[in-house]
Design a protein around this nucleic acid. Structure first.
Lengths: 344, 344
DNA sequence: TAAAAAACCGCAAACGTTTGCGGTTACGTT
DNA sequence: AACGTAACCGCAAACGTTTGCGGTTTTTTA
């Protein structure tokens, strides 16, 4: 019956002996066409299972109503979760989103942005890849006046709108919590030295040590590249220091998970031997034994604010960049409660 | 300098006093144009930061080289992970993918498919939503001769290519493992009754009981809708049976995580009081205490096979549907080792 | 009853590409 | 000197829509 080629507006027009423009208007319910012919068009369209070609539509209107989202990975709960809230907010505003993963690779990041650019997305939401060190690809977007909002993994040199958290303060408070719970020798399992937010957290860590007059030395700072293997190695290296720490701040739950796993293997007890606090507050935190103390970031609101900022730029021309700083919350659990009985 | 409107092929043509077709050919490195003019075109294109409009290109070629992927959610490690391998394989074949989440909702599933259809994706990779009960939206794709491959969450009535695992067998072996480890009263924490694969696993569970002459009764079957709250309720209901089970098969790690959490709260010991085995083998399994015995599905290969089947349909017309069944592997860990000492 | 307004519809251009076909040049070959 | 043949490039149509403008026909108004 139906041939292989999809049915177009012209097909309908021809079958009904009317013009394509009339069909177009009828399908969109414009007022200037007769109810009878509209009815006929609608019916035939339905019968032929007509699908409007989004490409053609976007081409003539020069609008895709699409925003591109660039994320390091979707396998992290944090990112897939804020993606959810981004999609929700975007949909509400009549935009659809297309997602790309960089897998933490700089090359992939520029390639993906290039792709989305060619696909005529109207704006970008980006969280930088681990390996991204220079930002020409982002600045190119800005030069083209394409709206960009960056969240979480950002860089200070970028003059875009951002929604972030006060990483330094959050780390300070997390470290303070460790100290208040009796930790004396603190170590830090940081992310790659290239990551700004990791360094900010490191700064907060250091500041807490200073405030409480604890000695600070680089020998208690280890950098993980986020892979389990590397993380485990770094964690065990730290614990084989002549004077191993009795409290550790890790930069993400993923790092903490691997660390706790390694410690379990080696018989190192948490929190008795060493307390642990972390970042991101993934749901898995509460499933672990001991449950993991972690800094919560307001995922829902982060997504909402990100698209709010982007929409502002999309709807009104030439907006000056704005930075929104959301507040964090330390979720205190067993892994940092030195005074608590385990499995209470 | 540069105006707001993006630079097109015509702009370049005009600036160089040549025709648009020449520019087009030059940009694509076709042989019939003079090296000098090609050079000029390339240079100007670079200088103006020309971006080819993918929409226009796709429109004239009637090809988007894009495949649509419909997933229940990206927050499950299983799905986001096979998405990764799908993207990898698709990219290798020169296709790009666009992902949509259904959030387990039937309505969203049909809406998302509709969207992708309008966006002219050339084929679909689908894993069904929890709430999907009828399949007109899928069959419509088939009628349109649009290639579709379904994986994991499928339905038997669908005459598409599929890549799946032998859920019944996997569940049988998992249950057998529980029995061989000394469990006498077995319970099953299944997924929604609407999910075929959950029912298949249930069948495998039942078959194992029969083989070992253990009593089977529906009172030991509970259905979770995958949410933590509901799962916890179902799990606790099961354990407050007059004769609670000493071994439980759960249909997914997510269900198992919530279950283990609930048991920990209630002081129910795993595996001493009740052993647990599960499905999906998420990385979190090894982080838990006790670590979680779980059925592994070959994620990498699943993604690879899925796009292989889809590509076959895309490149050669009219292919008969094919079903690929991959093999699973039970990863035995502490949660099911009744004889093992905890924290060995 | 004539003019004005309303209702309905078609023409053609446009969006940014690709591509078949034809048309100039310029060169090498007899 | 004439001709065949490369080499190089432009015209115009096409992809499937939308939309400004203009044209009929019908209805309303005075």
């Amino acid at each position: 019956m139906t041939k292989n080629a999809p049915v177009t507006i012209k097909d309908i027009a021809q079958a009904l002996n009317i013009s394509a423009s009339t069909v177009s208007r009828a399908l969109r319910g414009m007022p200037e066409i007769h109810p009878e012919t509209r009815q006929a068009v609608l019916q035939l369209a339905q019968q032929l299972d007509y699908q409007p070609n989004q490409l053609a539509k976007s081409l003539v209107k020069s609008r895709t109503k699409t925003i591109g989202v660039i994320l390091p990975t979707l396998s992290y709960y944090f990112f897939s979760s804020v993606l959810n809230s981004i999609e929700e907010a975007a949909m509400q505003a009549g935009y659809s989103v297309v997602v790309c993963q960089t897998n933490e690779s700089y090359l992939r990041e520029v390639a993906q942005i290039q792709n989305l650019l060619n696909s005529q997305v109207e704006g970008f939401i980006i969280s930088l890849a681990r390996d991204t060190q220079h930002f020409d690809h982002i600045n190119r977007l800005l030069r083209k006046q394409i709206p960009v909002v960056i969240f979480d993994r950002y860089d200070e040199s970028l003059e875009t709108s951002k929604v972030i958290v006060d990483n330094k303060l959050a780390a300070f408070k997390a470290t303070e919590h460790l100290i208040e719970n009796g930790c004396q020798r603190l170590g830090c399992l940081a992310g790659p030295p290239s990551l700004l937010i990791s360094n900010q957290r490191l700064a907060g860590f250091r500041e807490a040590l200073q405030k409480y007059n604890l000695p600070y030395t680089d020998r208690y700072i280890f950098h993980s590249d986020f892979t389990p293997e590397n993380t485990i190695m770094q964690a065990l290296n730290m614990m084989s220091l002549p004077q191993p720490p009795d409290g550790i701040l890790t930069m993400s739950d993923r790092i903490a998970f691997s660390t706790m796993y390694a410690f379990k293997q080696k018989g190192i007890k948490i929190p008795e031997d060493v307390a642990v606090v972390s970042f991101n507050n993934e749901p898995t935190c509460i499933y672990l034994s001991p449950s993991l103390t972690s800094v919560n970031q307001p995922i829902q609101e982060m997504g909402a604010q990100v698209v709010r900022l982007l929409l502002r730029q999309l709807e009104s021309e030439h907006n000056t960049p704005e930075t929104i700083t959301l507040s964090t919350q330390l979720m205190i659990r067993e892994s940092s409660m030195l005074s608590s009985k385990k499995f209470a």
